[in-house]
Amino acid sequence: MVYALIGVGALGCAIAAVTTKRLLNSAIWLALTSALVALEMYLLGGPFIAVIELSVGAGLVTVLFVFAINLTGEESTPNAHPVLKGLALVCLLACLALVAYWVLPPTLVSPSNPDTQPLATIFWEGRRLDTWLQALLIFTGALTVLGLLRSTPQETDQKEENPDGLP
């Protein structure tokens, strides 16, 4: 029952995050979703990943979003066309119902055997190739962000005569 309560809470926060008008509020709802997902993870028996999700998902990512929203400024988001929204919703619900109908019947067996290995061993030893690749991904991401946010001389020129700039 607890799973259901927390799950409904997480879904509610997620809906709020994607429907709220102000971006800042959206980011905060996302943080709440993240916190509830972390709680669900804790209940499922993953205390370690819950802490990481709480600090990275609810903490770091929110900070990043707030930072980016500060840089870009709040912008009144125009509403999507209601027909489009309805259509998207119907398609999505149909897909989800289909997936749920297909996936659910087989037995989700409860775990009988306890943890085979501690997380640290699996992360740093067993799946160390994944860990190395993560390091490379961080390097790649850093290069990409540096490259994207570099100043380009042409742009500053165009900005003064920018016809489609800020109102």
């Binding site: 993953g46 370690f48 990943i49 990481i52 943890d115 699996i122 993560q134």
Partner: peptide, 19 residues
């Protein structure tokens, strides 16, 4: 949880968070 290897599940989730 379902496959009874919580360590692996958490390790994969951690990787996904980072990426």
């Amino acid at each position: 949880r379902v496959s009874g290897n919580m360590g692996l599940g958490q390790s994969l989730a951690l990787t996904v968070i980072v990426v």
